[in-house]
Amino acid sequence: MSSNATSRKPEPQTAQDSIVEVRDVHYSIGGRPIFSGLNLQIQRGRITAIMGPSGTGKTTLLRLMTGQIRPDSGQVLFDGIDVSNLSTRDLYALRRRMGMLFQNGALLTDEDVFENVAFPLREHTDLPEALIRNIVLTKLQSVGLRGAARLMPAELSGGMARRVALARAMATDPEVLIYDEPFTGLDPISMGMIVRLVRQMNYALGITSIVVSHDVEELSILADSSYIIAGGKVAASGSFVELKDHDSEIVHQFINGLADGPVAFHYPAPDYYEDLLAG
């Protein structure tokens, strides 16, 4: 079964080559539907943004893409391979082709920066120590933190931790990098660094990047194409210019950061006048 899956030819694509595809995925947690008929294509070699209001399930989508959870129906394909049907071993083999950057870095707290970046190398390869050292230092250099190799995660600022996490995600040279809210909670300078790194990594190394975020401003500079997810489906997709002029109300509210619209300002409540009078 497993050899079948890995040697099967990728499905025929549209004009651009999609490395990750989400086809008509339905997923619910405890009866509450998160996705009802989600369709996405992530183009190879490009930076794709995935945005949406809070709670639309962006992180859930990432979990579906990386095989951590299975859709109720529909398919998630990575390079033509159905992620949800893999055995643990094949799934792990597939995950080595992806790198993921978590919201808070998720560095191992009891190891120093060097060991953190070396971690995937030590676990998956038999490379000699000298070679590991070179790779680690190179990755750290590319994120500008080679001098911080011996610091502990607790001594790093948020931005630095995220850069180390990026170096770690890059350690095994994955084909796809997934960023989960990489800009959240950073000061403008650190944010600028991350933006630059995301772009550099993508184009210099020829990889694909998926950025999940709701930082409209940053993404407008960064992303080649974007998806806005709302109401369990794709509400809009395309380049930023297209999105800015989209007719959908929710897209309009999201892109322009409007306080009220399809996502209401007021939480559902009884009539104001009556409420005041009752007390």
């Binding site: 951590q68 792990y92 993921m100 770690r168």
Partner: peptide, 18 residues
Amino acid sequence: GLMRATDQLTAMEMMAVD
């Protein structure tokens, strides 16, 4: 528990380390 809360365990799974 702390490793769970800071996503370290998930990060490991993502790096294909059990």
